[in-house]
Design a protein around this nucleic acid. Structure first.
Lengths: 240, 240
DNA sequence: GAGTGGTCTAGACCACCTT
DNA sequence: AGGTGGTCTAGACCACTCC
């Protein structure tokens, strides 16, 4: 009993979804309101329950509705505006803007971990870590200073890479499959060396992203990405 | 033929999903690799194709795999680390940390839109806008200066609200259902008045979130949220 | 034509909540 | 007991890609 007419590119579950989406966006239902049950929507749209269920499940995953077993489906309290923030490989990001990317390698070395660093990587005190400092330029302008520590157990050949050709992010994702990452975003002043490398004043505010990346339960790398505030911003959007 | 044993809290589609997730996280399959087809997974796990399909569809929605009709399913190129960044009502955020929230109202007025502002709100030049400036305190410490413009057509009673009790975000979400939002996050120095209101130096870097919120296709409000860099950071995590 | 994923159905059993 | 959502099945038709 499939009734897919030839000129119907829009799947049924999307029809249900868009109908509900519009009614919510238009204020026909407001936060907390009870939506029609799956059985009612089955009647209204003349589709099977699995189709209605998929439409509702996806709206739930988006955070637009709340579902309570045994009770019903409600419009979510949209007291938060969440959206997917993407922290990307800086090379791809620049390339996508149609600009030229250059990387200048300032350090690539082995160093002894401080007690704090060793603890973070769960390595014995005094263990060796790889360290790199790279400045990324967009059309010749410095937009990011990448100061990175790498766990030698996860990427033993790190020091042998040519980072004028490929970024550390790109290389590390190849050798160590990403399983988890944690990051913070903050606004601070640059260190003296960062200011020098980026060609800015120590008084210029910077957007700093700190990130730890895990693979197979081990910390692969920690990085501090410092961006001159005047040359870089994060942006995003949210659609109900 | 449902074989749900009483002591199996984990749904079948999650078993399939977790199996694939682990194989990808462990490096058994790397970016670009071809995964087993749905038909093969049906055999392997002894479940129906709908169940396998759901497992794969959700992994695709998460960005972990790519699917090409007529070809197959592949491990996605994880050249980006994306995660859900949530910009929330500051009251909820503080309350969730178990801290005390206070709001100090500094301005609540009507003003004539500049040409630029009028254009942004799609209103005639010189139209009236509502304007509020509120400083939010967490346990008595200023963490956010909220400078907001509101479209009177969307929230005519804005000026009559008691913002020591409820936040503008909360009120506006009630009167104007959220349909879309756009935001940027950047690092800059505070204006003179912001520095004064937050009790910081004009040289202290700040994390600034600018956001426009739409409802029914109209811009309801624009806001500039200024946070002292030393007292506020955004954080998030990502799980493959 | 064979294999892939995209969608859909008409049932089903279950856990849960309300009454 | 009756309604709700959560999950699952064993089929089906379709569009697409590759050979």
């Amino acid at each position: 009993m499939v009734r897919k007419s030839p000129a119907s590119p829009e799947p049924q579950y999307l029809k249900v979804q868009n109908h509900l989406r519009e009614r919510i966006a238009s204020g026909h239902w407001v936060a907390g309101d009870l939506l029609p049950s799956e059985a009612e929507l089955v009647q209204t749209f003349g589709v099977s329950r699995m189709t209605v269920n998929r439409a509702l499940r996806e709206l739930h995953q988006e955070g637009l509705i709340e579902r309570v077993q045994g009770v019903g489906t409600f419009v979510a309290q949209l007291h938060r505006i969440s959206s997917t923030l993407t922290v990307r490989d800086v090379h791809d990001e620049i390339a996508e803007r149609g600009h030229r990317h250059e990387a200048v390698l300032h350090r690539l070395e082995t160093l002894k971990a401080t007690a704090e660093q060793a603890a973070e990587f769960e390595l014995p005190a005094g263990a060796e870590l790889f360290h790199s400092v790279i400045v990324h330029l967009e059309n010749g302008v410095a937009i990011q200073c990448e100061d990175r520590l790498v766990n030698p157990l996860c990427a033993p050949d790190y020091l042998a890479q040519d980072f004028s050709q490929s970024t550390p992010t790109h290389y590390l994702l190849q050798v160590a499959p990403l399983s988890e990452a944690r990051y913070t975003i903050e606004s601070t002043l640059p260190s003296e060396s960062e200011a020098k490398l980026l060609g800015i004043s120590r008084r210029d505010p910077c957007l700093v992203v700190k990130r730890s990346t895990l693979s197979r339960g081990r910390i692969v790398t920690t990085v501090r990405l410092t961006h001159p505030g005047s040359r870089y911003l994060l942006q995003g959007s949210f659609q109900a």
